[in-house]
Design a binder for these strands. Structure first.
Lengths: 260, 260
DNA sequence: TGAATGGGTTCTGAATAATGGAACAAATCC
DNA sequence: GGATTTGTTCCATTATTCAGAACCCATTCA
């Protein structure tokens, strides 16, 4: 573990979590380092164009180079672009957040998200990564995923809220149920007030490669609604799967770079 | 400039540019470092969860943590979510890519993008950052931006293609014209085959804070179409500006975290 | 089959490079 | 207006990083 690299990323991450530009000494304090150390790190990050100082001030802020790099990393995923329009359509029918979840290692990733237009809504951060077993989208992927994956997840179950599953046996039971009913529900396992429903999305070979989910505040996602939402999800997923499969045949597009 | 930090980011970036998992020795070669050096860096990046080894193999690939961090960095931008639906609507009327451009330092950033459904289309990478003076969206932002910004841009003009502006005098003339006509056109300055049209987007105070653009292959964006596209862009922009201004008044939404 | 190549990983010592602390001016607080 | 706090620079010391050699494993080629 190269220490200076670790520190640099700690700085980067703490800046991304803050909600505005930060002062050098705060950054130093947040990460217990000396001011001079933080200064050198920031200097380096600045030269690399990940950080800049806000005009005529000594405050530091992130550039969007992380976004550039990150976007490049997901862009390989053609599923996202195929799914997006259908998610938008689904979002019109439902007063909740609609999300496309994929797997990234042992994490569930919110690969795309259409925000609910409701005034009271839950936050669905695009790009958010959460342990698979704690969210409905992740559970679906676990339920239909290989045993080897599940084994790894079981090896380090950590509780985030009181409702988080921490017992492998319980988890396996949940997954069995999910397979039986064909959808997953997660209730406040990451966060007390939230609830989500997910259904699996498959590729041409029938492997589950993603999950589409609807999530919102617990009190609005009553059990009576679940069946209805599951139906909507399945409808949407069928359309996405069809469009995606088409993509493989119709993939003759001559793509050339562009000018904005 | 902390060397190991610089190297770590070089590794990260080279991996994000590759189109698949890489071998250790290739990563080492690409960045001229010894294998053992590359190994240590990858080891560190792996512990930090930016990199992982693909299952049952020695290949290395990026996790999507960069995406997580990057997405968090842009999420502060409420404009994107407000603009998105309107961009989708615009995209239905035009067989080209539609983009929302903002400024990030001296770079133009593709903050959002709806892909053209045309078979022949240009690539519009979400998250792409390009020098402001080379793309239509950036030119608009320069044209209406402060002199201090322009001065900094002029201080380091670099040519990317033969058509890139490299003379400050020429650039200033272009910007004057843009201000006069109220829109910008860029022709293959980043890339020979591409062309783009952009119009400015303003906040409540009248400052230009972004540009909406339509871009596509040069031969399809004839001069006869420009006027039409400009009209469509202006229409869209008016709607976005209105919705955005509303947001400031209607910003009472109680947001709570969610479960996927 | 067996040698040979190239790859990933581990280890070690040498030397570089990162770091903390002192110092200072500028800014900020009271 | 005096007292902190802050950003930045400098320096010397030491901890850290890094190259290189050595290792094992896989694959290739003879």
């Amino acid at each position: 573990m190269i220490k200076s690299v670790e520190k640099a990323f700690r700085v980067l991450e703490s800046m991304s979590l803050a909600d505005g530009p930060l002062r050098l000494s705060d950054i130093a304090r947040m990460n217990d380092m000396t001011r001079s150390n933080a200064f050198h790190l920031l200097q380096t990050l600045q030269e690399l164009d990940y950080v800049r100082q806000v005009e005529d001030s000594t405050l530091y802020e992130l550039t969007l180079k992380t976004f550039e790099v990150g976007a490049r990393a997901v862009s390989r995923n053609s599923l996202i672009s195929v799914a997006h329009p259908e998610l938008v359509r689904l979002s019109d029918k439902v007063p909740e957040n609609v999300m496309l979840n994929t797997r990234d290692g042992l994490m569930n990733l919110v690969a795309d998200r259409i925000e609910s237009r409701s005034v009271v809504r839950t936050l669905a951060h695009l790009g958010a990564r959460t342990p698979l077993q704690l969210v409905s989208g992740g559970k679906v992927q676990l339920a239909y995923g290989p045993e080897s994956l599940l084994a790894k997840v079981c090896a380090n179950l950590v509780a985030v809220t009181e409702l988080s599953v921490t017992d492998p046996v319980v988890l396996r039971a949940q997954l069995a149920q999910i397979r039986e009913q064909g959808y997953a529900v997660a209730i406040g396992e990451v966060n007390e007030a939230a609830k989500g429903v997910s259904c699996p999305l498959r590729n041409r070979h029938g492997d589950v490669v993603a999950a589409v989910s609807i999530s919102g505040p617990m009190d609005r996602l009553g059990n009576d609604l679940i069946a209805h939402y599951v139906a909507l999800l399945r409808e949407t997923i069928l359309l996405i799967e069809a469009a995606w499969a088409d993509g493989w045949r119709g993939q003759s597009s001559v793509a050339r770079p562009s000018s904005a």
